[in-house]
């Protein structure tokens, strides 16, 4: 038995407890505080300029006049393409990892790859998207190029959350399905996936959130056009890019903050939806 040397006592344990609690509480408060301050800061400067007109009017004179309608549409399209492309690929990879492999070298390599993909700075994705989709595949600055670039960016999120959701489904569900004459694939499609659906959906929603807020990857791939896009090959400007442009080119501060306010509210709503689903999902299996 090793006895540790007694440290000199600076504080009575009871007081140390109080101090520790206070410090930890302050750290927690700081985290939440920063979030609330950012939201407050943006909304206070921007919300006053947001109205129905702002949301439904086309931007005019580089966005210094009018609304942000075409950028809302552009954001929806680019995000839509990203999610529609990333979801089946991500889900497929997750099903493979969770259901068809034993933990081993291969799964470790795949998972490491996915995690690394998540760590790549978004501007690198933008550069890659520009070189590959815009230039090499000649998609030009377009919704398609931006959407595909975003798809690669949100893929790791979708893979990871879907895999976790699939793994959280009790093994007994699979056994029951097999025992009732289902094949492995039928068990996955009819029993495991429905049970994991809320978790999978959470991953997709988080991917949507990331797509909506992304700037660097999109500005290189979808461009900055303020015109209403009519096809996947049209250039468009997302809300984030619009905000960036308005600020960097000193076009209009009120319009910039108004755009930021819409963006922040959108992201908040998306996150609330994701966490509500996630909570419902985890409660179901505990």
């Amino acid at each position: 038995m090793i006895t540790l040397p007694r440290l000199p006592r600076l504080l009575h344990p009871r007081h140390a407890q109080v101090v520790a609690k206070a410090v930890l509480w302050a750290m927690t408060l700081a985290t939440v505080g920063v979030l609330f301050y950012i939201i407050y800061f943006v909304l206070r400067r921007g919300l006053g300029h947001v109205g129905w007109d702002f949301l439904t009017e086309m931007p005019r004179r580089s966005g210094s006049v009018g609304g942000i309608f075409s950028t809302i549409v552009g954001t929806l399209y680019v995000t839509g393409v990203g999610v529609v492309v990333a979801t089946p690929i991500g889900l497929g990879a997750a099903i493979y990892l969770a259901e068809y492999t034993r933990e081993g070298r291969l799964t470790r390599i795949v998972r490491f790859g996915a995690e690394s993909l998540a760590g790549v700075p978004s501007i690198i994705f933008g550069l890659f998207g520009f070189a590959f989709f815009v230039t090499y595949l000649r998609f030009g600055w377009s919704i398609l190029s931006g959407g595909l670039t975003l798809a690669f960016m949100i893929l790791p999120t979708i893979i990871r959350t879907s895999e976790e959701a699939l793994r959280a489904v009790p093994q007994s569900y699979r056994e029951v399905a097999l025992s009732l004459g289902a094949s492995k694939w039928q068990a996955i499609v009819r029993v495991v996936m429905p049970a994991a659906a809320p978790g999978i959906l959470t991953g997709i929603i988080l991917g949507v959130g990331r797509s909506v807020s992304e700037t660097a990857a999109v500005i290189f791939t979808s461009g900055v056009s303020l015109k209403m896009p009519h096809s996947l090959f049209d250039s468009t400007r997302t809300m984030s890019v619009h905000f960036y442009t308005l600020t960097m080119e000193s076009i209009s501060e009120p319009k910039a903050y108004a755009t930021a306010a819409v963006l922040v509210i959108t992201i908040l709503l998306i996150n609330v939806a994701a966490y509500t689903l996630m909570n419902r999902f985890t409660r179901k299996f505990r």
């Binding site: 569900y173 029951v176 009732l180 289902a182």
Partner: peptide, 30 residues
Amino acid sequence: KMAKLRRRIGIVFATPQPLPRSIYENIAFG
């Protein structure tokens, strides 16, 4: 072939394992 065998040879597990669906759908599953 395994599925065919398991339709002929059913099993009831130690702990009750209903699937998270209705009574009707539990029975109609197989």
